[in-house]
Simulated scan of single mutants.
Amino acid sequence: MTKVLVLYYSSYGHIERMADAVAEGARGAGAQVDIRRVAETAPPDVVAAAHFKTDSSHPVIESADALAGYDAIIVGAPTRFGRMPSQMASFWDTTGGLWAKGALIGKVGGAFTSTASQHGGQETTLFSLITNLLHHGLTIVGLDYGFQGQMGVDEVVGGSPYGATTISGGGGERQPSAAELDGARYQGRRIAEVAAKLAA
């Protein structure tokens, strides 16, 4: 059975909801899926002052070495000025040993993100996540146009050929829409399908 890791960082719960949808899609393709989050690195007073969401049913990933046990790794994080946040970057900075051994070469990867506004850096943030995966030798699967939910213009909707996205609003008031969650499920399913084919 194909093993998929959904690895995420979420400040306010938007990416956490997207991670659940990505995992749902991958499970729908018959994969065994684990959802893990990276550790919070912001000081406790900053977390409290910013009202970060601190309760989650998903455990923190214990070690970067765990990545080697998966056939596919799907990474989600919100934007910080058009790139991944320091919490996720700090995690990937611990993966040098895996890189040196080529431990992730040939696996399948993908990314998803959220921004406050429609033009808040969704694609550049996805590329900042994908860049790490490419350096590790993963084959990237995005949100292809088989998912037509990203094509409409009659409502505000995230989505990019580079990965599933959501728009949170300036105060985090907007939760992922049905179309955005469907995009996350679609991408999760596609990644699991590709990983299964490569492992066959």
Rank of each mutant, 00 (worst) to 15 (best):
V108Q: 07
A111G: 11
A111D: 00
A111T: 02
A111K: 04
F112R: 05
F112Q: 03
T113A: 14
T113N: 07
S114T: 15
S114F: 11
S114R: 12
T115L: 11
T115M: 10
T115Q: 11
T115D: 11
A116E: 13
A116Q: 13
A116Y: 10
S117D: 12
S117T: 14
Q118L: 15
Q118P: 10
Q118I: 14
Q118V: 15
H119D: 15
H119I: 14
H119V: 15
H119R: 15
H119M: 13
G121Q: 03
G121W: 03
Q122P: 05
Q122V: 00
Q122C: 05
Q122N: 00
E123V: 14
E123D: 14
E123I: 02
T124I: 04
T125M: 01
T125G: 09
T125Q: 04
T125N: 04
T125R: 00
T125W: 02
L126Q: 01
L126F: 00
F127I: 13
F127D: 04
S128M: 07
L129S: 05
I130Q: 02
I130L: 12
I130C: 11
T131R: 10
T131W: 09
N132H: 14
L133G: 04
L134G: 05
H135E: 09
H135W: 12
H136D: 13
H136T: 10
H136R: 08
H136Y: 11
H136P: 08
G137L: 08
G137I: 10
G137Y: 06
G137W: 02
G137V: 01
T139R: 12
T139E: 03
I140C: 07
I140R: 03
I140T: 02
V141I: 15
V141N: 01
G142E: 09
L143H: 00
L143A: 10
L143Q: 09
D144V: 03
D144L: 08
D144S: 14
Y145A: 11
Y145N: 14
Y145E: 07
Y145R: 11
G146L: 05
G146F: 07
F147K: 03
F147I: 01
F147Y: 15
F147C: 00
F147S: 00
Q148L: 15
Q148C: 04
Q148S: 13
G149P: 12
G149S: 07
G149D: 06
G149H: 09
G149V: 06
G149L: 09
G149Q: 06
G149C: 06
Q150G: 14
Q150Y: 02
Q150H: 00
Q150M: 15
Q150P: 05
